[in-house]
């Protein structure tokens, strides 16, 4: 299958202080991994496209180092004013001149958690899609997707060309090998301007929500701990 994976560079939310460290979106890393696995033993390409600032090149190189074929960098110095709607339109413009059997995206970005760009893109391109995939298999002309639904897993067969958004529950992305890293360094990454688009939503401010206060913490023997807890649950919390 000829794949293209849409990837994004995001701040590392795990860092306890805002370090400013940028990483490959974890969901996208799983999408890259899955495309590579599906294509193992074939000559089919796994291409990449990223929308982001010039400094995001390092993230593209990381995904290339995993084994992806070629990448396009759509340079947008600040993603600030772009919502999922705008991103989907920029990507749709890119795919108007690039054909693939399957486009993969992460199921959401770790920073904005919107989970919309993939399915919006599919609709703009008029192709079938599935979201929140945890498994992928090529079957002739079809891509068979296992997706995590509300109360179980749904297995859907999509006619190609199609689009799938991937969960990080899909796989554990490989650590690039030294050979992969060296190879990725030598690759040309063509830059491209973004189509002009407009956002339909606007973030006016972001703030820390009033955090929970830590409650009480007990140490001791199991019997003691349990009797303290049960008494609090009954008399203070009123939940028993």
């Amino acid at each position: 299958m000829k794949f293209c994976v849409c990837i994004k560079q995001v701040p590392d939310v795990q860092a306890s202080v805002q370090t400013g460290r940028m990483v490959l979106n974890a969901y996208d890393a799983s999408a890259v991994e899955e495309a590579l696995v599906v294509n193992e033993g074939t000559d089919d390409v796994v291409d990449l496209v990223l929308i982001g600032p010039s400094s995001a090149t390092e993230t593209i190189r990381k995904a290339l180092a995993m084994g992806a074929s070629n990448a396009t960098h759509i340079v947008v110095e600040s993603l600030g004013g772009l919502d999922s709607h705008a991103i989907a339109h920029i990507l749709a413009d890119h795919f108007a001149s690039h054909e693939y059997d399957a486009i993969l995206t992460g199921k959401q970005s770790q920073d904005s958690d919107s989970g919309l760009a993939g399915s919006m893109l599919a609709e703009l391109l008029g192709i079938p899609f599935a979201t929140n995939a945890v498994g992928l298999k090529a079957e002739g002309e079809d891509l068979v997707v296992t997706r995590q639904g509300d109360s179980g897993q749904e297995i859907v067969a999509l006619k190609t060309p199609c689009l799938v958004t991937c969960s990080n529950d899909m796989n554990n992305p490989r650590i690039p090998s030294l050979k992969g890293i060296m190879g990725a360094k030598r690759k040309q990454i063509p830059n491209k301007e973004a189509a002009s688009v407009s956002a339909l939503t606007d973030v006016s401010k972001s703030f820390s929500p009033p955090g929970r206060e830590a409650g009480v913490k007990w140490e001791g023997e199991a019997e003691e701990l349990v009797s303290q807890l049960v008494s609090k649950l009954q008399n203070e919390a009123g939940v028993l």
Partner: peptide, 11 residues
């Protein structure tokens, strides 16, 4: 957003 570290007012 940001794994619920922040709340974003969006319009």
């Amino acid at each position: 957003v940001m794994a619920a570290k922040l709340l974003a007012s969006t319009t």
